[in-house]
C-alpha cells in the first residue's frame, strides 16, 4: 500500500520508493529508503502536506511524494535485544571473513 493511504500512527516499513533519481536520493539522505520504519504523525488540511516519522527523524512531505512510497504495515516488532545479539554475531563472522 502507499504511504499516503496509511492511517495516522500506524507503524509501517518502506518496501519501495518509486521516485526518479534526484528525489530518491534526497529521500535516502534523510534515511527514507527500503527497510526504514515509517509512520504518519500529522497531516495538514486536505492531506496536502504530511508529517512522517522515519526511524527517529521527523520529515515533512507533500501528498505527491507520499504517493510514490510503497509501504507494508508491521504486525509484530521483533524483540530489540534479540536483533542486537543477531547483529553482533553477524558482525563477528564478517570480521573473521575479511581477515582471511
Amino acid at each position: 500500500m502507499k504511504l499516503s493511504e496509511l492511517k495516522k500512527h500506524q507503524e509501517a516499513r518502506v518496501v519501495r520508493v518509486d521516485a526518479s533519481g534526484e528525489l530518491k536520493q534526497r529521500l535516502a539522505s534523510f534515511g527514507l529508503l527500503r527497510g526504514a520504519n515509517i509512520k504518519i504523525i500529522d497531516c495538514s488540511l486536505g492531506k496536502s502536506t504530511i508529517e512522517v516519522m522515519v526511524d527517529n527523524t521527523l520529515l515533512a512531505l507533500r501528498k505527491e511524494e507520499a504517493e510514490k512510497i510503497e509501504v507494508e504495515i508491521i504486525e509484530n516488532q521483533a524483540y530489540h535485544g534479540k536483533q542486537k545479539r543477531v547483529r553482533q554475531r553477524e558482525r563477528r563472522r564478517l570480521v573473521q571473513e575479511i581477515k582471511k
Binding site: G21, K24, Q25, A28, S29, G31, L33, R34, G35, A36, D55, H80, Q83, K84, R87, Q88, R91
Partner: peptide, 18 residues
Amino acid sequence: KEIRANEHAAIARGIALE
C-alpha cells in the same frame, strides 16, 4: 548512488542497533 545509499543505510541501521 542508490546502491551506495542502501549500503550506508544498512550500515547506519546496524551500527545504531549495536
